[in-house]
Each structure stands twice: as structure tokens, then as C-alpha cells.
Amino acid sequence: MNRLATAVGSVKLKRPGIVASGILDETGPSMARMLSGGAGAVVSKSIGSVAKGGHANPNFIETGCWTMNAMGLPNPGIDAFREEMEVAVAAGKVIGSVYAASPAEFASLAGKMEDYGAAAVELNLSCPHAAGFGMEMGTDPAMVRSIVSETKDAVSIPVWAKLTPNTHILASIGRAVEDGGGDAVVAINTLKAMHIVPEFGKPFLSNRFGGLSGRAIKPVGVRAVFDLRSAVSIPIVGVGGIYGHRDALEYIMAGACAFQVGSAVSEMGPGIFESINAGLKEFMAEFGYKSIKDMEGIAHE
């Protein structure tokens, strides 16, 4: 019996851990490596209509407590990404992440991801460091609903929406995804943040602002998933600061049916999924849980 099997709606996963968007997912061989290393699926880099180099370096910094980045959505463009997807989908389940400036553009990119063999599409409604994209659209419930519903009309694969924590109306955004026909919500993306180097009296990131991730944000993510669980009935994928199985369990018990891992790959290496899987199995055996489903949302009871 595989205790770790789970499903995000109709997307069945042999393992509950998914590689978060932006993590070792810019190339086909890189995604294939992560799929062979214990991840249940990999979310691709967020892909747009045309190639984008992203923000200038410095665009990344980490401490033991947190990680901050302002990559600026670098990607080779949806057409060039076809060959990367071909390599990746041959190795396992790939969720195609896309970003766009309008509902029609989201729908068109999602259609291409479906053509490339994506198991689902993840709408990036939450990147905090790219002007005109991501969070700037993902904090308006009417816009979110329209993006989700237009994308749903364009594809037959499930549509997931990745949400930003940089809002006080997270529950309304979640309901907008559900009302638009969305199949799952993914929470959370990074928190908008800044790091200043005192010796220089200047922000470190070339973009000045970036997105905070890593250990520091886990409690924010767990709270967001807990809130969403009360607000929506579609599946929730939890993400933010997961470094070990106990972090993953918090998200599951708050209401997630699967989880994503991002920043931790830097410190723990690509082998992190194997170690989380082993920890989950041991925990479930000790506490008598037969499936991920058995633990989903139990913190609400």
C-alpha cells in the first residue's frame, strides 16, 4: 500500500510533494531529474508569451531563516519551452505554470501547455516582483475570476491558481478562483519584502523589492491554507517554507491535499523529496494514518 498517494482533484500523485514553480524547472533535463528524485510532480518555471531575461543580478539572497528573490520571471517564451516540456513530460507529471497580462493571454498560454502534455496548468496570480503581472492581477477578485474562467474555457486539463499572501482578502480571492471554475488553489507565493545592506545604505536586490520565502514564511502559509480551507471546497496545495516532513504535515493538517517545496532545495539539495517522503511514512505508521487524505484538514476538527 502506498500511504503517500494523493490527488489534487483529478490529478493523481504517487507522492504528495511537488517542485514549486521557479525551482530547477527552467529546462527539460532539470525537471526530469527532480521527477526521478521523489517528487510527485514538478511545476514548470512560469512561462510567458515571449522570452524574458528577468531582473539584473543581484536577484537572490538567503540566510538561515529566509530566502528572498526578484528573478523577474525569466523564461525562454512559450514556443521555445515546447522542447523542455517534451523532455520533462516523458519523465513524469508536469504542471505548466504561466503568467500573462490579460485573461486572453493566460488562456492562450494554458492551451499551449495542454498541447505540450501538462497534467494541469498553474496560473501565476501572485509573483510580487514583476510590474503588470502576477500579484498585481491576483489581488482583484473580479480579475481573478475572469482569468480563471477564460482559461477554463480554453483547456480541458485542470486549472490551478497560485495565490499571493500579500492581501487581506485571501478568502475572497480563493472564492473567485472557485467561482471561475478553478480546480485547485495553490498557497502561498512569496511575501513582498526588501533587504537593505546598511554599509551601502541601499536595497540589495536590483529590483529593490523581492519575494520572501523559506523558513520564515511557513506560519503565514499554514494560516493561509487554514483560512482557505474554510472559504473554498476545491482542493488546496500548500507551499511556503517546507524543509521537512513536519512542515509538510502542518500544511496537510491545515487543509492541503498536496504540497510544494521551493527554497529548501538550496539548503537540503534535490534529495529533499526523498527525505520528506521517508519522514511522512514513518510518521503515518507511528500515528496510524493510512493516507494523506486521513490527515487533510484535521486541525479544523
Binding site: L24, F60, E62, V265, S266
Partner: peptide, 21 residues
Amino acid sequence: YMKCAAGICGSCMVDDRRVCA
């Protein structure tokens, strides 16, 4: 070409290997 240098962004891949990490 490198961005994060910390083994997560995937900019410096050669095949499935990270040059930085």
C-alpha cells in the same frame, strides 16, 4: 550564466547538472 548561485533557480544547468551547486 548564473543567477542564484545557490542551486535552485536552474539558470546554470548543463544537462541536468547545476554548475553552481
